[in-house]
Design a protein around this nucleic acid. Sequence first.
DNA 1: ACCTTTCATGTAACCGCTTGTGTCCGGGGT
DNA 2: ACCCCGGACACAAGCGGTTACATGAAAGGT
Lengths: 336, 336
Amino acid sequence: MAITIKDVADAAGVSTATVSRALRGLPNVDSLTRERIQKIATDLDYVISPSASRLASGRTGSIAVITPYIARWFFSTVLSGVESVLQNAGMDLLLMSVSTPDGQHRLPPAPRLRRRVDGVLVIALPPQDAQLHEVLGLHMPTSLIGLTMPDVPSVTIDDVLAGQIATQHLINLGHERIGVINGAPIISPYTAENDRFRGFGMAMKDAGLPIDPMLEAYGYFTIAGGEQAMTALLTQKNPPSAVFAMSDEMAFGAMKAMRSHGLQPGKDISLIGIDGHDMSEFLDLTTVVQPVQDLGRIAAEALVLQLRTSGGEVAADSIRLPTQLIVRGSTAPFKA
Amino acid sequence: MAITIKDVADAAGVSTATVSRALRGLPNVDSLTRERIQKIATDLDYVISPSASRLASGRTGSIAVITPYIARWFFSTVLSGVESVLQNAGMDLLLMSVSTPDGQHRLPPAPRLRRRVDGVLVIALPPQDAQLHEVLGLHMPTSLIGLTMPDVPSVTIDDVLAGQIATQHLINLGHERIGVINGAPIISPYTAENDRFRGFGMAMKDAGLPIDPMLEAYGYFTIAGGEQAMTALLTQKNPPSAVFAMSDEMAFGAMKAMRSHGLQPGKDISLIGIDGHDMSEFLDLTTVVQPVQDLGRIAAEALVLQLRTSGGEVAADSIRLPTQLIVRGSTAPFKA
DNA sequence: ACCTTTCATGTAACCGCTTGTGTCCGGGGT
DNA sequence: ACCCCGGACACAAGCGGTTACATGAAAGGT
């Protein structure tokens, strides 16, 4: 019913092999022949059958993106970066979310990847996540975004540095009792939060400031969590004068908690986040901006490149993108 | 290299045809044989080759989602609903964004869909969008989300009603000079904004209130746009006492503008949005909540169902989901 | 007992493209 | 003139499933 390569070949008076080569820009095709075939193909409105092509060639021309969340700012922003690159590269993007600690059960992604994609992009899964390891066990070209693992290419920011910059900013303003809103307590699953916390610790240590365990709260990277965490910090006998939230969304929640307590960010308590969330400017939040869309873009580009130059085992380098401190009204000098 | 259906067939001592039937749950296979084959398949760690299956069967088992934006709240939330359904249905989700009025040029989506997906889900494109029409011209099973068109199945809210409810709420509070932050001026491209504006007009008319063209501003469905629009409304000689923003994000921008002018939402001016954005609770914004994730979920379910019962031409019904007014602090009774 | 069904399974023809291997031809080298 | 070489193209064997059709045996009807 649909028109096939055979139809084009017949119309052009050549073999299907030549059509295939001509259309794909392979060498050893006379340029006149090629042009003629291209014209005929467009005239006939021919579109190649991906399934047939994939079956014959063994390449799928598609990449899977595995993410724990779709409808969260960080993830959807990374995704948009990935999508733009893959679209330009002419690759299909298969979107697949995985079950999350707090989440619904879903099919494990690994089996759904086999024979189906050429490569995988994983966004910010905890390094010890079982599903992540299943995916890595597939041994297909893979790139990580927002998390790092030994021997796997990745694109992230320098989270330690980001934590350090954020904390240092508060210290520079004269704050000494600095609270921190972390992701999850005890063994935190994400590398990002560990690293940011390490950066926090380093900055504190460099400044000779003590780290009060009472000033650590957990916001689970959500707005509601940030609100609770801030509430916990505020209801202490000796609250902090400044708070470092490890994500902007938690900072938003923290702002809400402050407001409930009649406190004003930047006036009564300084607050800094990390992310550069769309709303951070709107809410006048000081933050360490990370180039989220670029995270996705660059990871996708690297993966596409690796697939193109396939076989040529690319070094598993981990790319770190720069961050930038944007000072806004939520942070201000310490006033005793 | 990878193991094929042939290997399974040999191991089970049957033909590939039987394996194919057994594994896909087709009838006319002895239950013992089926179980044996299934066991062997899992033992051998066999995974079907999608390309081969697609080529032979003509079905791709995948659905494309076409959206103008990925990293915006509404779109990513719809997408997450779609994804969860498709994942459960065992279908692949191909994500594809299209060029936008304000956007970068991209490949037109239609050619990339042919022979590649079984169905298409389109999120909130303007009804007269050229790329949308190309897609519809493909005549494949398609469902629209957040927009309606004659003879095409769709899932939306009742935008007229939503606009009416929002406006009526302001009227009920005693407001008479009601401003409106629309999407774009003149011929607005989205059905949603037209309909919401019609609802606005209906409510005003029912209340016998005049519509002052000076009280209409345009926010282009973005935060920054909402801020500008609100600024325009506020800098008039006779500003409104209440404002209906057609989306929460525009309302957020409006809040910012109000704050810049030293005004407080719900105190000095009432403000209502539409969406039920994650941040609306946080910002204490009264809004007409639409079930965004369900929009995606239900559209996906309908499409999957249609594909399953394929051939049985499904009626192109347009499903409307209910909305809900959530009153928060941004709206308050009119005070002269 | 004989014929018709029914069910489980095998046979083999595709599905539409890719690619290794040939074939043919013109041109350059000697 | 003869040979070799490379470029342009054709041939045909897959790639790994699906499915219409054929087959045979067991079951059921009269």
